[in-house]
Design a protein around this nucleic acid. Sequence first.
DNA 1: GCCGTTTTCGGCCCGACTGTTTTCAGTCG
Length: 573
Amino acid sequence: MAVHNAEIAEIFGRLAELLEIQGANPFRIRAYRKAAQTIEGLSHSVTSMVTEGADLSKLPGIGKDLASKIQEIVETGHLSLLDQVSSQLPGQLAELAKIPTLGPKRVKMLYDTLGIQDLKGLAKAAQAGQIRQLHGFGKKIEEKILAETDRRSTSEKRIKLHTAEEFAEPILEFLKGIHGVQEAIVAGSYRRKKDTIGDLDILVSCQNGKPIMDRFVAYDEVKTVVSKGHTRATVVLQSDLQVDLRVVPEESYGAALQYFTGSKAHNIAVRSLAIKKGLKINEYGVFRGETRIAGRTEKEVYAQVGLPYVEPELRENWGEVEAGLHHALPKLVTINDIRGDLHVHSKASDGHFSIRDMALAAQEKGYEYLAICDHSQRVTIAHGLDATRLAAQIKEIDRLNHTFKGFTILKGAEVDILEDGLLDLSDDLLQRLDLTVCAIHYKFNLPRAKQTERIIRAMDNPYFSILAHPTGRMLNEREPYEIDMEQIMAAALERGCYLEVNAQPVRLDLTDLHCKMAKDIGVKVAISTDAHRTTDLDFMRFGIGQARRGWLESGDILNTSSLNALKKKLIRS
DNA sequence: GCCGTTTTCGGCCCGACTGTTTTCAGTCG
């Protein structure tokens, strides 16, 4: 049984958390965290690297010791050191440390003095007023713990980027309207276009922060004020979304934006570069001794440490710092590179608009083409098309195309991949289409090897063009099904097939890391909205964000091609 | 535990805010 990268990362992450509570050397803890991150960001399976005899200690942040620990995990499925540490400390202690105001030190204290091991015990002790009596604790901390243990039982999830926009944009408008505000921007993972957002980090530049803080905490959606100073404040909205505001003077805006955009790991890497150059970077600027030598723009901050501007989507410490030093950063795809959408629905299946309306909307966006891909017959819940209805749709599209100039509707279908890997429509019919997007809609729970085989067998069909929403995940709703993505991508490359980055905010599937894997393997992807209504075509921006996080350039994307080039690429050899 | 254009030891990002203190540890981002 192959151990996945995510599992190895998880083991190191858990170990780091427990070691932290034990009070181990913080830099040793950081080493485990960094290793976890490195492994999570790899596009190649560590298990196969071990099998191939690759030297793991060549990986950044992984030395001799961690290399042998990885080997142990790959070979045995677990890490004896973690087992040993877990036997000394109950595993749930790490969960407690995730509660605001509780960190490793306080969790250790609670465990040592009151024997608290889990959320339940914590809530009980807080209700009994035991916590406030401990040294270093008090009434306020106890109240916060109570509030949090209450809240935990109701909600606790990262929200989708799309949802975050709905909160962020109005707050931004509100802040921009305050007298004295020069610039206001949402930084953090929102700016890095992560698929989900834990909280909103907003940065404002102005000369005097105090009045802005006063207005901010009085924003009408604010439920509680967690903290408030002259330059930083944290509030929680009615919706339980946390919003952090940071105010800096204009001359520090770039440095603050860089700092506040993160990621944390990226910032550590950049600041380490600065140290080597005898510089110090903080949110106010880049300093040599006491003198500020940069800070107004992000670009000049990066320039001081010998880096070109790094796009926010790349700032994950997934190799962008090294690439920047070697002038090898990708020129990321932008929404303007997109020439068409290769997966949309019409009301023939579960869409809400006619083919003509969808096409007009796509043309309005400046696209050259749009592929209508309604569901196939098996997907009855979406009113999938059988052979007769699809044949009629093909004729309709041919007719409609005569009415458009400089714009082409492509004939497609979202074909269900049946359990045995066959496609849900006959080859006779499929060959009359310009392309197919093929997807799994049923039987999500096959074993990994079977599911992988199912998809690859489907790709054997000469009319398979694009694997749609390849992992099937739905953010906060459904886990991805088990597949060997590397094997699938290699198979797609071999057969002249493509993978989709489904731009639906709830899907964003492929993930960012999968995009990076696709680039490494050399298989191209289609960024498609899976639109069910005309306005859904705007989801393209989320797909673009995801692709950019995966280092993809215009040339890595199928639908940046002109219509003619696209048609050639869709012909399987 | 990692790492090296101060290289095999001695560093490791950096500052704001809170609560519990009475000068600062702990937490957070």
